[in-house]
Design a protein around this nucleic acid. Structure first.
Lengths: 333, 333
DNA sequence: AACGGCATTGTTAACGTGTGCATTTCTATG
DNA sequence: CATAGAAATGCACACGTTAACAATGCCGTT
């Protein structure tokens, strides 16, 4: 019943448990022959090490945390998917990947060096700040993705949302649009602000002013995009193009257009942000901005692992380029 | 630097570490006054227990595993999202939720009672069988979702895919369709087979025979749906309706239709399976079958937790009903 | 022959926590 | 006042692993 330990193996092999420990850890101190003999025995009795015991003495948990601001509203399926995929791809099977929402924790009690070898925070909002500071305070190796953090020193990987939004908006202008509305993301999210800033910057640069009514709020989900576009379509001076702050909302927006018997991009142009998996397959295919979440997550995880192993970090803030993806949902006028 | 232990607290309080341990665990043996005093001290020095040490002596890891067949091709973003959300919602913050793909492990070495208090397998294919048997063999509390398992005794929660596919296909027939093709899921996945069986059963029941060419293979992703529908459209006797084995492929299929200047459902009807988040927002809104992955995951997690705590389990196989969702992508002819 | 050094193995303690049993202190009861 | 018993606390060990240090045996060198 109770699983076999190195002491059991020691008895079988007629050596001390220390020798077994060393043999299984490939210590050069051990005679190659005994090493093989012990490994054979360990295999035959199906030995698996007790990680709790090992953790206790080595002061390493083999736990890696991947924390999202929330796993409820505001985190889209595609975003979660890409982030997990990116991180999962690089960590070896020596680690446990623990995925949770920060808002799932009532207290940060369990967050300490003993329980986590390192933490990746996929930070979507300032509300993570206290969590990040707590982890930093506990001196847990820490990577923050997606949102720039100034107050504390962390390894920081962020997509350049603002410049992406800028280039997209500029593209809309180049296509002849002068009445460009925006459907915004979830309030309080950093990305919401960056995308709005890029949009404004481009319009200002080209001397285009925007009526108040062209700013419509959303929260990154499909329904909110639908509702927001519905509002825009009611307007007396309807925009000719709409920048949706993510692709989910763009899909909802397109729905609102077609429901009214209008068409995209004939009657109104729509652009998104993220380049979701489905975006190329929408009708019409969505013009958007690609945000390399998977790459960014992969890079973050690699950096974290390297830091854990070498205790050495060079650079802190890395910007990831976003890329304009031109498809069929914007008409030249 | 090194974190504070119960022994440090013991010194500060002038008691033995045993008393501290008992006090913090709310043992009735301890005088309420000393208990309060010790708790106050623990709070003031910011004590956090070492879970490795606790795990070692209590023989519990506080780790819960959520394992997918794979995190690469075949697992859609929405599926991952709903599963994680469902499980995450019910586990308290006393547990770590470990998410990984089974194919990420080179060996199942780390799978044992000491490292996992319980395991949830979101099983998509028979290839998980060895993993499931291994875990079962190690006597780890085990819940298998999404796929029925016969060989070993586990707690099993599965959606009734076959009956969902049956009802959907029957609906197509009722709408007057006689030429109904199917775009199949990933080979080897149990769900692929169940949906095909439901489709066949319905057609047989209504005395409709299907040409070989109406069976087209796919692998559950968008591109494969697009490619499969392209093939179908080339056929001399084009079907009037196509059952896509998931919504992702349906989206790809619709794209293939519109690319050719045809329209859904005017020229050809399309139905999906899963009821993804985006499905209601496609143009046209997709007729599909809702599969309650989130509910199923939640139920599985609850059952697992209860089992861990009480060591008692009543029922083994629970079927979750799938539900026909009628929208606008199927025309009555 | 004595001795230094290397290769190999063993002894022992340590990591931080929980628990069975012994011990002390207090209270009530006869 | 003696004592039984309850209440509160402490002692010592266990969990399974790693590692510093000690010990042993062997070989070659002077």
């Amino acid at each position: 019943m109770s699983s076999v330990t190195i002491k059991d193996i020691a008895k079988l092999a007629g050596v001390s448990h220390t020798t077994v420990s060393r043999a299984l850890n490939d210590s050069p101190l051990i005679n190659p022959e005994t090493k093989e003999r012990i490994k054979a025995i360990a295999g035959s009795v199906n030995y698996t090490p007790n990680y709790s015991a090992r953790s206790l003495v080595l002061d390493r948990s083999y736990n890696l945390g991947l924390f999202f601001t929330t796993l409820h509203t505001g985190t889209s399926a595609g975003f979660l998917y890409e982030a997990i995929k990116g991180v999962n791809d690089v960590i070896k099977d020596g680690y446990n990947l623990i995925v949770r929402g920060i808002d799932d924790y009532k207290s940060f009690h369990k967050m300490n060096r003993k329980n986590f070898d390192g933490i990746i925070v996929m930070s979507q909002s300032d509300s993570d700040q206290s969590f990040i500071e707590y982890a930093s305070d506990k001196e847990i190796p820490l990577v923050v993705l997606n949102r720039p953090v100034e107050s504390v020193q962390v390894m920081n990987f962020v997509p350049d949302d603002q410049s992406g939004a800028y280039r997209l908006t500029e593209y809309l202008v180049q296509q002849g649009h002068r009445h460009i509305a925006i459907i915004e993301g979830k309030q309080g999210f950093k990305s919401t602000q960056a995308r709005r800033d890029g949009y404004r910057e481009a319009l200002r640069k080209h001397g285009i002013s925007v009526p108040e009514a062209y700013y419509v709020s959303g929260n990154y989900d499909l329904e909110s995009g639908h509702a927001a576009m519905s509002k825009l379509l009611e307007l007396p001076d309807r925009p000719t193009a709409v920048f949706c702050c993510n692709d989910d909302m763009a899909l909802g927006a397109v729905k609102a257009v077609t429901e009214r018997g209008l068409s995209v991009p004939e009657d109104i142009s729509v652009a998104g942000f993220d380049d979701n998996l489905f975006s190329a397959f929408m009708s019409p295919a969505l013009t958007t901005v690609r945000r390399p979440i998977e790459e960014l997550s992969r890079a973050g995880a690699e950096k974290l692992l390297k830091f854990i192993e070498t205790k050495h970090s060079e650079q802190s803030l890395v910007l990831f380029h976003t890329e304009l993806v031109i498809r069929d949902s914007v008409k030249s006028i």
